[in-house]
Design a protein around this nucleic acid. Structure first.
Length: 455
RNA sequence: GUCCCCAUCGUCUAGAGGUCUAGGACAUCGCCCUCUCACGGCGACAACACGAGUUCGAAUCUCGUUGGGGACACCA
């Protein structure tokens, strides 16, 4: 049977950057082996789950180009099955009803803690006669975890990890309100969906020992696990909203390209020798859990910017123009769109993000105030004006030829001419090359601006 | 507190006992290219957390210390 992976976010917020990486890795792994990648929405927490969050996650994945197979599974629709299975465990003597109150549980934890032990449930109802059940109290269902022995996990990333069973407590499978817990639901769904490999953040590592116990109770096969390290903020502390725990949509509005985000995320905690720029196809071909690192990594925006710059330069001009028009508030005339498209090659190599590109683009779309010039400059400009007007074809080659000839003829440095023209075509210090600008503006607009400066 | 995990340049990492006076990338700083700015090219700076072992030999193996992270809910 083939590989089946899944991404299982809980829809309580946006698709954050760590989640995006988890999804990416699961997706790459499945695609590498020609298997399936499934999406499961873990919405068992009805209070916190929203349809809006589901949309945000779906949009985020689509934007990143991560496509899933089959219809997404909504965990909430599987409540019945989860609870029935838990009850079957009670019947089989592998789970039991517990009637403890919240106050009792607190006391147990406090007691364990004061004895220097892991705080946990003490098994009060584990072997009690159900006849002793207090009336009017709705019980939870707890799993009977073996009191002796240990549980071992052979993790694809972290290696072999063994935990003593006395660290695990009899976890709750079904709450007193009759709803299943995350622990139960994950296991049942991973089993029912035939998940073969679970790649997830290593904040789930210790949960995995509990999951294994549930798998064992049911007598089911356990999937392979790969726990990937978490992403930290630039300061090494846990990722917070302050520094990057943003939704992928936020990265989008910051002007990053999805391929840059994917490439960046891929290289965070994973490597393939010295390769840095990795296409989607190469990533699918190369991805393997063996190359995953074990330590947490920090988010580094300067590297992301560099990568984004690379993908901007590599991007198709028309596509970039479309992206750009989406984030420009005001209308851009057809004429100016043509200008932008002609000038895109020169613009995109000067921008690291779409936001920077938008700013640079104003050279071709915005208003400007031409610089003041002295008489000498005006004389030079007058001659240039005549020379350029006489050009038959307004091409970069012809423009350069004409201006270079003029430069030699009058013994005026080409740089002087270029900066003169820059000052009357734009009021920016930083612009594309002067020939590029003349071509992008086109004959009409260029001559018009020169004329305006002369008068 | 208890349990688990991690540890190479500022950052992401290569490195699976000798080829490591530790390689690449980003960032930083020079130089070159050059009409400004970028791009590109060349170069510089810069790391095996610490301490014991094992071994002829350790960044690589073992143990300890320190530092960081995660988990210990009727959240997921």
């Amino acid at each position: 049977m083939g590989v089946v992976t899944r991404f299982a976010p809980s829809p309580t917020g946006f698709l954050h950057i760590g989640g995006a990486r988890t999804a990416l890795f699961n997706w790459l792994f499945a695609r590498h082996f020609g298997g399936k990648f499934l999406l499961r929405i873990e919405d068992t927490d009805r209070e916190r789950s929203t349809a809006k969050a589901v949309d945000a996650i779906v949009d985020g994945l689509k934007w990143l180009g991560i496509n899933w197979d089959e219809e997404p599974v909504f965990q909430s629709s599987r409540l019945r099955r989860h609870v029935e299975l838990a009850e079957s465990l009670v019947t089989a003597g592998k789970a039991y009803y517990c009637y403890c109150s919240a106050a009792e549980l607190d006391a147990m934890r406090e007691e364990a803690k004061s004895n220097g032990l892991t705080p946990k449930y003490n098994g009060k109802w584990r072997d009690r006669d159900p006849k002793e059940a207090p009336v009017g109290v709705r019980p939870v269902i707890r799993l009977k975890i073996p009191m002796l022995g240990e549980t071992t996990l052979a993790d694809l990333v972290q290696g072999i990890i063994t935990v003593s069973n006395d660290q695990l407590d009899d976890m709750i499978l079904v709450r007193s309100d009759g709803t299943p817990t995350f622990m139960l639901s994950v296991v049942v769904d991973d089993h029912d969906m035939d998940i073969t490999h679970v790649i997830r953040g290593d904040d789930h590592l210790t949960n995995t020992f509990r999951h294994i116990q549930i798998f064992n109770a049911f007598g089911w096969d356990i999937p392979q696990y790969a726990h990937i390290p978490l992403i930290h903020g630039p300061d090494g502390a846990k990722l917070s909203k302050r520094h990057g725990a943003l939704g992928v949509d936020a990265y989008r509005t910051m002007g990053y390209l999805p391929e840059a985000i994917c490439n960046y995320l891929l290289r965070l905690g994973w490597s393939h020798g010295n390769d840095e720029i990795i296409s989607r196809e190469q990533a699918i071909e190369w991805f393997a859990t063996e190359n995953l690192g074990k330590s947490a990594s920090r988010l580094d925006f300067s590297k992301l910017n560099n990568l984004n710059g690379h993908y901007m330069r590599a991007a198709d001009n028309q596509r970039l123009l479309n992206d750009l028009l989406e984030i420009i508030e005001e209308d851009v005339s057809a004429e100016k769109r043509c200008r932008l498209l002609r000038g895109m090659t020169g613009l995109k190599q000067r921008a690291k993000t779409l936001l920077e590109l938008r700013d640079l683009a104003r050279i071709y779309t915005g208003d400007f105030i031409p610089a003041q010039m002295d008489f000498e400059d005006l004389d030079i400009l007058r001659i240039i004006s005549v020379k350029l007007r006489s050009l038959e074809e307004w091409t970069e080659e012809n423009l350069e030829k004409q201006l270079r000839e003029f430069s030699l003829e009058k013994n005026i440095p080409f740089g002087k001419i270029a900066s003169l023209l820059r000052n009357i075509l734009s009021d920016r210090k930083i612009t594309p090359g002067i020939l590029d600008m003349l071509v992008s503006f086109g004959r009409g607009e260029s001559l018009e601006r020169i004329n305006a400066a002369l008068s």
